[in-house]
Each structure stands twice: as C-alpha cells, then as structure tokens.
Design a binder for these strands. Structure first.
Lengths: 193, 193
DNA sequence: TTAAACACGTGAATC
DNA sequence: TGATTCACGTGTTTA
C-alpha cells in the first residue's frame, strides 16, 4: 500500500512536524475512494462467477453475469409464454366444464348421476345413464360397459344443458353376466369417480 | 482535466523543454485507466436504470439491477414450476394416449373402415364412422374424438352384423379445431390401427 | 527483474 | 462560492 504521488522529495525540514500542504479535498477524496471501494466490494460479492479479483475483471464479470441473467429472463419468459399459450385451451375446457355445471344447476338438474340397468330377455339388456357432462366420463362409461362384457347394439347419447343422457340396448357376450343391480352400482361408481 | 499529483514544485528549469521524469509505468497506468474506464462505460450501457452518471452510482445501479434480475428470474422460475406442475396432467394424458395407441394396435381393427367429418357451422360438425365391431374399438374412437377437442352433442351408435355405425353431431371446444379432412384421416388411423 | 494492479494526493472541472 | 467528482502521475506492492 504505497504512499501517493505526493511529492516526497520536497521533504519539509523547515516546517518541523507540521503538515505540509493538505489539499482541501484530501479527506473528501479519501471518503470518495472508500465509498467507491465499498461499492465495488459489494458488487463483487453479488456476482458469483469471479475470474479474478482485479477491479477490471470484477466489472467484466458483473457484465457477463448481467448478460446471463438477461438471457435467462428472456428464456424463462418465452417458456412461460409458450406454456400459457398451450394451456389456454386447457383453461378454456375447464371454464367450459364449470359453465356446464352452472348451467346444469341453473336448470334444476340436481341428480348428479343416475343409472338404470334392466334385463330384457336372456342376455339382452337395456341401460340408461344420466350424468353431468365431464371430460372423459363418457369414455370411462363405455369402457366400463365393455369390461362388463356387454356389446352395445344400439346406443343413443344426447347432451343437453350440461347433462348427458346415455341410452343403450345391448347384449352380454359372456355367459355369466352380473346382476342388473350390481352392474348399475358398478356403472354408478365409474361415473362418480 | 488536471495534471496529476506529480510534484509540481520540483519544476525542472535546467532540463528545458525535455520531459521531466516519466515514470516507467506511466503509459501502463494510462492503459489500465483506459481499460477500466471502458469497462465502466460498458457496464453503464448495460444497466437501464441509471440514476446518476457518477462512478459510484453506476455500480450502485448495477447492483440494484442485478438484484432485480435475480428476483425476476426467481419469480419466473416459480411461475414456470407451478405451470409445469399443473400441466403434468396434460403430459399424462399424452402418455396415456400413446399407451392406448399401442394397446389399440394390439387389438387391431383392420377392415371395413369408413369415416366422414363435415363442418356444419362454426365449430359445429357432424361425424360418421363405420367400422367392424371389435372389443374396445368404440371406446378408442370416442376417446380419439375427445382428444380432438370435440364435444358430442348427440350421438347414435348402431351395431348390425358385426359392423358399427357411429353417427354424431358435435362441437369443438377449442379454438383451433383441425380441418375436417385432417380429423377424418386421424379417426381413420385410430380405427384402422 | 519485469509487468501489472493499486492507493494515494493533487489540480481542475462541474454543479 | 463550497462541495463533489474526476483524471492524472507517482511510489509501492505483488505475482
């Protein structure tokens, strides 16, 4: 930590222990340097990727760090935008489902799920299911019916005011078809989820 | 732009017009200052919110800017994480779709396939599919239609002599409904596989 | 030793 | 004016 450029040759032998000249801004300049040094230290502490301790490199590292952060922000923003764009449809669907639910309630359809299974003759049967419209519900219902071993001969599906009416005439393909009431309860469970 | 702290009192009258002393590192120090100044300028150019042109404030502004960027990155990351968490279902659906496709190929419906998709008005459309009866085929078809973003308003399914006639009146729930012919080909692929 | 980095005190400039 | 900032040349330290 060397002394400054203050002229060291003009040593004052005549002035004794007194100070030589003392610029007015000497102390102020010291404060300024101190402050600046502190700032640089703070900046250095904030930047993670430090290549060197020198003053120039601190600033350089800070620059590269800022650029990295900017890039990261941009990338994240893009990803988020893309995500939002793709999930807009999902949101719409959900909103539509809510609308369906509200509409259904508005029209006083209180019965959430209703199922009826009737044997007709032999393995022939008749199914009627009423439920609130919901994504995947119909597919699950048909899958369940298929798993019960029922072949759908003639089916009508009608959607109205957020409700779905499923009516079908079918036939069991296996010998041991379950009881009607059992099937009904099973289908109810499926639809109720 | 004043001259430096070089001792001005030790003025050399004897050396005439020649340079006075010229420290060895004078030029190097000039280069160093130049470089440092350039870095600071670069940093200043990179930071948008500049409160003051002074050297200290440039660094201060850079610090606050970095902190802002960090915060922004964190926020965006959290949002993205949340979004990804909510869109996991979407991924699951897609994976399930692939699985179902494989399973469908295992079951296989190879003959007698016919599909027709007609736009009616806006997102409303009419679908007709004829195919050979096979276990699970109907379920897959309905799931495919659901995946296309089509709400089935009114549907009739009739089975006769091993063939299935599927007729439906539906409506797209998403904005970007594919072209009729495209959907037709998609349904054909689903059924044929 | 050389070369680079640094802190210092100072004069000038800016507000 | 007075307070503050800056660039400069220098001596010293460090690698």
């Amino acid at each position: 930590m060397g002394g400054g450029g203050m002229d060291s040759e003009t040593h004052n032998a005549d002035n004794g222990g007194d100070e030589r000249f003392k610029s007015k801004n000497l102390e102020a300049e010291r404060r300024r340097r101190k402050k600046l040094g502190d700032r640089q230290l703070e900046l250095r502490a904030l930047v993670p990727n430090i290549t060197n301790m020198t003053k120039s490199t601190i600033i350089t590292d800070a620059i590269t760090y800022i650029e990295e952060l900017k890039l990261t922000v941009e990338e994240l923003g893009n990803q988020l935008l893309q995500m939002e764009a793709t999930s807009v449809d999902e949101e719409k669907i959900k909103l539509k489902e809510i609308d369906d639910e509200k509409e259904m309630k508005k029209h006083g359809i209180k019965v959430e799920v209703e199922a009826e299974v009737n044997h007709i003759c032999g393995t022939k049967l008749w199914i009627r299911v009423v439920f609130q419209k919901k994504r995947g519900a119909l597919t699950k219902l048909m899958e369940a019916i298929s798993l019960l071993g029922i072949d759908l001969i003639d089916t009508t599906i009608t959607t109205s005011r957020g409700a779905v009416l499923f009516t079908s005439f079918g036939q069991g393909i296996r010998a041991g078809l379950p009881e009607a009431d059992q099937m009904r309860k099973y289908l109810l469970e499926i639809i109720r989820d």
